[in-house]
């Protein structure tokens, strides 16, 4: 039986940021998500101007991925096609759907914009993460009322066991009307890490219990 290990993870939730178990202290208070995420983007010195064009859901997922991926050197250890992205959430792109709807609901004030419309698809956030990090492997965006760690585990395990991908960026990125919560982790194969002489003792197994524990940020 092949083991799949969680080698990095991060949470962004209502003014709270945790990466690999470390809480990033944020003393400032923010009223809106837009203010908060802009602050975090600057604080982390990401330097990716396309960030400003993204909708709020993509900003949240993108920045969570950014913080998590910063701590792992995937690029030198894997090919683009070996890295997949599997994300789920509850409200798909509804937050942006309402924003877009404002631009078409009134005949006399009708100004649909392609740059808003494109974000009315939830998997655009996977596209943003893939473009930034040049990830070309398997994709899936799923929708469930609550985070379903069992579903994510079974889909990721299956993709990795069948050697379709060697690494998966996976998790939960939810945002609707100022309520937001994101959890992203990196899953890699134990045998590959050992082959690269990496100490794997500090990593936990990809299981639904571990995913829900980390998402609730009780640490590794």
């Amino acid at each position: 039986m092949q083991n799949h290990l969680i080698t990095g993870w991060g949470v962004i939730r209502q003014n709270t940021v945790i990466v690999d178990g470390q809480v990033k202290e944020i003393h400032e208070k923010f009223i809106t998500f837009a203010e908060f995420i802009k602050f975090l983007y600057k604080k982390e010195q990401v330097g990716y101007p396309k960030f400003y064009k993204m909708d709020n859901l993509s900003k949240l997922g993108f920045l969570t991925a950014e913080l998590v991926l910063k701590n792992r050197d995937l690029k030198n250890n894997y090919r683009s096609e070996e890295i997949g992205v599997v994300i789920a959430n509850s409200s798909s792109s509804l937050d942006t759907d309402f924003e877009y709807f404002e631009t078409i609901k009134d005949k006399n004030n009708y100004y649909p914009s392609p740059s808003v419309f494109v974000y009315t698809l939830s998997n655009i956030l996977i596209g943003e993460i893939c473009i930034r990090n040049q990830l070309k492997g398997e994709n899936a965006f799923l929708v469930s009322e609550y985070f379903d760690p069992g579903l994510i585990t079974s889909i990721v395990d299956d993709l990795m066991r069948n050697n379709r991908i060697q690494v998966c960026i996976c998790g939960w990125v939810e945002l609707f009307r100022e309520k937001y919560e994101s959890f992203i982790c990196i899953v890699e194969k134990e045998e590959r890490l050992k082959h690269n002489n990496e100490n794997t003792l500090n990593y936990c197994l990809l299981t639904k219990e571990n995913l829900s524990r980390l998402c609730l940020n009780n640490g590794i």
Binding site: S80, E81, V85, P114, V118, I124, I126, G127, E128, C130, I131, N133, Q134, L135, K136, G137, E138, N139, A140, R164
Partner: peptide, 21 residues
């Protein structure tokens, strides 16, 4: 199988190599 172009959010790959993959 699925794949991603990692190129553009609203335009297809220039080369088609990701779909070919």
């Amino acid at each position: 199988a699925t794949s991603n172009d990692a190129n553009h959010i609203s335009g297809p790959s220039r080369t088609g190599e990701e779909l070919a993959f």
